[in-house]
Amino acid sequence: MTMKKVTYRQAINEALFEEMERDPKVVLFGEDVGTYGGVFKVTDGLKKKFGNERVFDTPIAEAALMGAATGAAVAGLRPVVEIMFMDWIGIAMDQLVNQTSMIPYIWEGIKVPLVLRTQGGSGSKGSCQHTKSLEAWIYHVPGIVVAMPSTPYDAKGLLKSAIRNDNPVAFIEHKMLYPTEGEIPEGEYTVPLGRASVKREGKDVTVVALSKMVVESLKAAKELEDEGISVEVVDPVTIKPLDMDTIAESVKKTNRVVVVNEAFRTGAVASDLTAQIQERCFDDLDGPILRVTAPDVQVPYSPALEQFWLPGKDKIKQAVLECMKR
C-alpha cells in the first residue's frame, strides 16, 4: 500500500471530504466551520466543495447545534456537528444527555447517526475555558460512543467509521495534535470503532494512554528503553465501548499498568479504566495500577504555572519507574 505523510488536521479533513463525497446525507455544521474553514482549519475547503446547505456556519449557540444535529439525524441526515472547544460542551450537554443519548433507547426504532466533533486538551496557553478535557462527562452517559484518536492514521480511519455508524459518536480531537504528522494510506481505508491499538510493544509495563498522552507515552517509552525498561503502549482509541481484550492481553504479558489521561484526576476516564483493569486482570497484576493525570486544579494560563498542570513524558517516566519498584 502506498503511504503518504499528512498532519492530524489534514487526516480529519480528508475523512470529512471523502465521506461527504460518498454520502449526500452527510452534513457538517458548527461555529466557523464554513467560510473560515474552522479555527483550526480542520474543515478548510469543505463549504466551497459541498455548498452552504451541507456545510455551514451557525450562530454561536451550542445547545441548538447539538439539538439540531440530533433532530437532523433522526430525520434522515448523517450530521457531523462541531463544538469548537470542548470546554463549551456544557451548553450543549442537556441535549447530549437528555436527547441524543436517550432517543435510541426510549424511542424504539429510531436511530441517531451523528458525530459530535470537538477538541480538548491543554498546552496552548488557553487558560481555564479553552483547554479542558471533559471526555469523562460524555463517557459517563449511556448510549454514546466515545473516540479519542492519537494519530493521523487513526483519526482519518476512525472518523470515517464514526460517520458511517448509526450510533451517536463523540469524536474528541486534541488541539496540540493538529500539526503532528503521520503516515496514512493513499487510498480508502477505515479504522473500526471499539478496537484498541498497541502503539509500541514491550514486556515490562503496560501504559494505557489516551489522545495526546499516547504521544507523550511513546516518548517516555523511548527514553526508558535506554534505562533497560521495556514499555508497551496501548491506545484504546475508542474509550467507550472499551476494547478490554487488547488491554488485558497486554497486562497478562507485563503484569504492571500505568494509565495516562490528560484530565482532572477525580472522576477521570483514567479512574474508570483503572477500575476496569483491576476487575478483569487482578490475578495478573504484580502491583497497584498507577495513574498519571492532571491534578484537580483549574488550568492556569502562565507557562510557569501550566507546567504543573500538564501531564507528559516526564511524569509518565516517573510513574513507570515507580510502578517497576512495586
Binding site: 439539538g67 439540531a68 433522526v74 450530521p79 436527547q99
Partner: peptide, 21 residues
C-alpha cells in the same frame, strides 16, 4: 420531552433535514 424547552432544538434538526433533503 420532559426537559422544559429541551426538544425545541431537536425539532429544528428535523426541519434542517427536510430542507437539505
Amino acid at each position: 420531552c420532559g426537559i422544559v424547552g429541551g426538544g425545541v432544538p431537536v425539532a429544528v434538526g428535523y426541519a434542517m433535514a427536510f430542507k437539505v433533503l
